[in-house]
Nucleic acid binder design. Structure first.
Lengths: 346, 346
DNA sequence: ATTAGCACTTGAAGTGCGAGAGTGCTAACA
DNA sequence: TGTTAGCACTCTCGCACTTCAAGTGCTAAT
């Protein structure tokens, strides 16, 4: 669908007026700005309504953009400008300030983005379903407690504490190492399965049966390394945009369900071509997100591991400003994480 | 302060009527219920107002309890009944379901309590400032990355990934172990200080200087083990109680600041006698919490480590129901964590 | 000490009305 | 044929006004 130049001008003006003010825009205001009479504008707007790009709140009020309207605007009309050097430097400094561990980098990034944009942000932990288990360590912490550490080929590291009911002596360690070498090492995390775990446990000899908890825990760690987990930050920022929502309670409740969020984010990953993904209002799969837009971008580090960072706000968020913000922050996060994990460069 | 039996009856009835309905209660309703004439009730209520236990929203509407009113009610008039066996069993099952790691136990408990109470919950990680560092492990993960593990005498375990710019060979390990043994092992985490860290780093010989990041990271881990961190769950539940708040935005924003929350919770720890702590409305130190109440309880496990679990809701929450809920859940969490960590029993 | 009665206060809810913004449609115009 | 002017119509919003119910404080009687 290609609009006439004049329709595009009108659409762009409606969007750009509506986003900051939240007020429906009428024909008169545009007529002054664009030099056509209000009647002409009205005719054009009426057609834009029929095309599904604009809509009215009630029979007689100004027009506001529909999801499709925003979509057309973003894809064809909007121009974004990259962040200024000053701002980049400031963000980088903030991001580096608390960057002691990968978890903190992500948490920090979410918080910074939330403050920067005044919206809620979602951050997912890095994961790579294609990664292979490259290292497993078992460290006795006390006589019957051990720490299990797992490292994948893409640089993802997971660990947990595990309790078993026997002494962790050399024998146990050896037996564990044997099983790990045979079944877990070099295995793709995506290919770990309940069945496989049960098979391994089933094959345990009697005296080795006590190490079952270790194997279960290891399996869990592997699974975790393959699946990214979503965290939300700055939800309360959305309360400031309450006027853009009918009832904001639904949305807030939705944002507290991590599994749902993971799905929300993973849905975006289908378009393989671009790193950015924008879903506007009704484009979102979830009914609770109908009045919201999501701007997502992927970060990557190490060998193929990646996660997502994004903002969630009302459909009338300032796309032109937020898109570069999100983009820059994901870049930085990827870079910081690489610095943390990489072995060879730097 | 001791009230007459009749005043107590009136106060109790006001509180018990106001909590579920949220409506100010007038003299007429009480007169029917208590058998005194409305005028008598009015006189008594007027005195309760002067005592600061009741107040009016506006010159001519029913009375509602003040913070002091709730306080008197809770301390002297309220009776709580323990949870039923059925409910206990259900909660225990839910809690055990996802209880694979200590972190998950806590997260899970927060979520369960939030759903159970319809309020926000706050959970702090276990910490013990008096604990000593009992074990430190350094595990090379790749040529220049290592995992650092720290265990305290009270059973708290912390770990992180650390990157240094030299190969982690036997030499480095030995040197690190030497320093750990000398300065960190058996040290109280509360006594770790920046100065001490700088002193240690200052004393490094040239060739050892590269292990500085390891020492910094270790210091951070020790600090973390001594300080508990607060997490909130179920904030969106508070939106359902919006009518109990003027503007809920302030509160929501407050709940997102982890440092503030830690303070909110640590303030409660002063009364050493009891495990439970209830702060009502203006009893809270923070202005943002003026319209909220907090019910906190401590869990403990292992050797002296403890944390807090609690609910946050409007001042007119159902104390009689929530107090046993919180109590039971903290007990369970303590027990579950003990099962995870304990070495000797079970 | 308790109660009945009465005047008064206050907020909530409903009504009516006019202003303002904006639309759709028709007819005139270049 | 595309554009514009004009007009009747619609809808929201704020304001003033009324009414109603609930509840109070106070005084006087019991």
């Amino acid at each position: 669908m290609k609009l006439s130049a004049r329709k595009e001008k009108i659409l762009a003006n409606v969007v750009e007026h509506y986003i900051p003010t939240g007020e429906p825009v009428g024909s008169k205001a545009l007529s002054e700005k664009l030099g056509y009479s209000s009647a002409t504008i009205r005719n054009e707007m009426s057609e834009l309504c029929e095309l599904g790009l604009l809509e009215k709140n009630h029979a007689s009020s100004g027009r506001i953009p529909t999801s499709a309207g925003y979509r057309y605007y973003i894809d064809n009309l909007m121009s974004t400008s990259p962040l200024g050097d000053m701002e980049c430097a400031k963000l980088e400094a903030m991001l580096r300030a608390g960057a002691k561990t990968p978890e903190k980098i992500l948490e920090n990034a979410g918080g910074i983005l939330a403050r920067l944009t005044g919206c809620a942000t979602v951050v997912t932990t890095p994961a790579d379903a294609q990664a292979k288990i490259s290292k497993v360590e078992l460290i006795p912490a006390s006589s019957k407690t051990a720490i299990l550490v797992l490292l994948t080929s893409s640089g993802i590291l997971k660990n947990c504490v595990c309790r078993i009911d026997i002494d962790i002596n050399e024998n146990v360690k050896d037996r564990f190492k044997e099983i790990v070498d045979k079944y877990f090492l070099k295995a793709k995390v995506a290919e770990l399965s309940e069945e496989m775990l049960e098979e391994i446990i089933g094959a345990l000899e009697n005296e080795d049966y006590a190490i079952k908890p270790l194997l279960s825990a290891l399996y869990e760690l592997g699974k975790e390394a393959g699946e990214s987990k979503a965290y939300v930050e700055g939800e309360s920022n959305l309360l400031a945009h309450r006027d853009a929502y009918g009832d904001i309670t639904e949305l807030m409740q939705f944002l507290q369900q991590r599994e749902q969020l993971s799905r929300l984010v993973s849905f975006q990953e289908t378009p393989q071509n671009s790193r950015m993904s924008i879903l506007i209002g009704s484009e979102n799969y979830f009914a609770e997100m109908e009045q919201s837009s999501v701007i997502l971008s992927r970060y990557a580090f190490g060998n193929n591991a990646m996660g997502t960072i994004g903002v969630i706000g009302p459909t009338r968020i300032d796309y032109a400003k937020l898109i570069p913000d999100v983009e820059y922050l994901t870049d930085m996060v990827g870079r910081l994480l690489s610095e943390h994990y990489s072995e060879d460069e730097e």
